[in-house]
Write a protein that binds this DNA or RNA. Structure first.
Lengths: 141, 141
DNA sequence: CTTGTTGCAAATATTTTGCACCCAT
DNA sequence: ATGGGTGCAAAATATTTGCAACAAG
């Protein structure tokens, strides 16, 4: 229901900034990016897109269902491509790397708990903040 | 380990702003408050504490382990008394009311998942955003 | 007294917006 | 050509900080 394959079907014109940003999410090795991160990557590549446009495009993409917005512990919003498969996140406190996971048991328990409390779940966010110290972290810093 | 009962044991002098804010968390019916919310409540009660001080006190209390900070979907931080019992949250999208819950199964699954991915959990946050429509919501608006 | 604490205003950080100009259709 | 899109600078929002005055122990 919520993932038009392209810009047109979302009612958005195919402009350079939009194509560049979308391409970044599709090709970058880090699936999770912030507005400033995107701005920096684009400028490093010689693409001059204003920070204001990055923010506008991210908001439009989120509303179009192309992107998902996350609020990790840092103050800035982080976005990722919405591939339609819900998942939760492990955020590494050492290197900021984000790992995804999905657990049927956790999903089921949440639904039951919300129901028991008289609520209808709209969505949820589960972030595990952890350490990759004992792990072969790809982004060790 | 992380919940001194009073200000002194946290190395903080007993000042009026600190006592007022602590008392607010202990007596207010809403356990979850933002800096601005605290500022407004204090001023409605004729207590003149500057917003800067509210922020400073909240940060100090958090570092002393007296308070826990949360990042719900809104941009502002929300705090609650740290009573030492970890729990997760259901946030009502209709009335902003926050309900707490704890589930052994979810906790266990998280620990296992993190281990399977090679991480050591530092902490985690699970927020369920829901609707109290079919429920007798105490803060219906 | 002495050091920590507060208020105020200015500074940051992140994100949004008004407006004139530009580009995709 | 025309309505949406963009850049720039200013505004808005949330939070932090420098500094002089002040209060707790």
């Amino acid at each position: 229901m919520h993932q038009p394959k392209n810009l047109q079907s979302a009612g958005l014109k195919s402009t350079t900034p939009r194509l560049k940003i979308l391409s970044l999410f599709e090709n970058s090795k880090e699936r999770h990016l912030s507005a400033e991160g995107i701005y920096n990557i684009l400028h490093s590549s010689g693409e001059d897109v204003s920070l204001a446009t990055v923010y506008r495009v991210l908001t439009q993409f989120e509303q179009a269902g192309l992107l998902l917005r996350h609020h990790f512990e840092s103050e800035k919003s982080v976005f990722e491509l919405n591939l339609g498969k819900h998942h939760d996140h492990i955020v590494c406190l050492q290197c900021d790397h984000v790992e995804e996971f999905y657990d049927t048991a956790i999903e089921a328990r949440q639904k039951k708990i919300a129901a028991d409390h008289g609520f209808t779940i709209h969505e949820h966010s589960l972030y595990i903040y952890a350490d990759c110290t004992k792990r072969n972290c790809p982004n060790k810093r």
